[in-house]
Design a binder for these strands. Structure first.
Lengths: 196, 196
DNA sequence: AAGCAATTTCGACGGGTGTCAAGGGTAATT
DNA sequence: AATTACCCTTGACACCCGTCGAAATTGCTT
């Protein structure tokens, strides 16, 4: 294959390898040669497809976005009671927390990087906004199924759900707690809160 | 001056320079030579006082801890009504957010680093725990002054307050929003929430 | 004043970094 | 079959990194 379509396919392939490397090593330790070793190519090729390292990482961030921002929509569509929604959301919540934990820690790493440099600010801002929307789709549907008028703003709901997620990730990765019972309790507490 | 007391004083001096450099550049970009340039000494002296770079950073983290973890106690002691506590807490909250924003972004940076490597995990865990305690001293006193029995766990209160702080920091540093009106509203919303 | 120990500087080391240019190879076009 | 355009590798570059040892400097003690 040749032409622009292959060019774009390679870019995606390399940006994916970048995403995996970042998730493995973190922003501070990820080098171009390491990224290339996680791909089928040598390090020089990265400068053929991308202007520089920051450009490459920005593309990787956009791939993350596509992966991560519609995760709960299926749950929203299928649940027919509030309790069902809450339980299936929780199930998905902890499933992706554990299976994609490396990707999620990368998200928080990159989000923090924008506090020091402006490179990905726009991308991070957009992902953040989409994550809030995604959270609100869940919570507002939860209100709807409960027959209760929303007592929380989208903003506050996101702070709570994302905060629980972040703490659960810390418990999983740095405390080595693979049961996460306290985090599960916390998520349940949050949904109780929403109905008060 | 000579002897062990001077040795310890130098360590603190250098660890402080390290803290400032980290706050300026972030973990990923901070080098020993850069740290030395923020001090009165040359880069070689760092290995006279510290075993290696990680040891040095660990000491810097402990200095941060001393600075940041009793910030609201004065407010707690002086406030005599719930409303007064809430308002003075908010004032202090946004004052330190703005004046020490570089230090705070460093905290979130280092906390995230522990998701990738175990070097400071113990220190970060302890600071996190102390931050939660500090938050809870405020919130539980707020309940006390309101004459209401606490409807939130310490954990949940921390997730909310810290989440609002983190988002406000992002708004300040990466959105360039120096009014922070939406964050102020959000903090007020949180305290309303506590009383429900 | 001399000696000694603590402190600091300086320069080197091996290695890793992002970047880039030159060249080889490969597939499509003429 | 020759040419051309695209793709990829290789190796070099200049620079920065953490570390460490040797030498210079400092300040106290005798």
């Amino acid at each position: 294959m040749r032409g622009p379509d292959k060019f774009e396919a390679r870019r995606i392939e390399l940006a994916t390898a970048t995403l995996l490397t970042l998730a493995e090593l973190g922003y501070a330790r990820t080098s171009l040669r390491e990224i290339a070793q996680n791909s089928a190519f040598s390090h020089g090729v990265l400068h053929y497809y991308f202007a520089d390292k920051l450009d490459l990482i920005a593309q990787a961030v956009r791939i993350y976005e596509d992966v991560c921002v519609t995760r709960y929509d299926e749950v929203i569509a299928s649940a027919s009671t509030a309790q069902e929604l809450r339980d299936e959301f929780a199930e998905m919540f902890f499933a992706t927390l554990e299976s994609d934990s490396a990707l999620h820690r990368l998200w928080y790493d990159l989000r923090n990087q924008t506090l020091f440099e402006s490179s990905f600010r726009e991308d991070v801002r957009e992902i953040e906004s989409r994550r809030e929307d995604m959270t609100w789709r869940v919570v507002s549907r939860f209100y709807e199924l409960s027959g209760v008028t929303p007592g929380f703003t989208s903003n506050m709901a996101y702070v709570i759900i994302d905060g629980i997620f972040q703490r659960a990730l810390m418990r999983l990765l740095s405390d080595g707690d693979d049961q996460l019972t306290s985090s599960r309790d916390q998520l349940a507490e949050a949904f109780d809160l929403f109905l008060r």
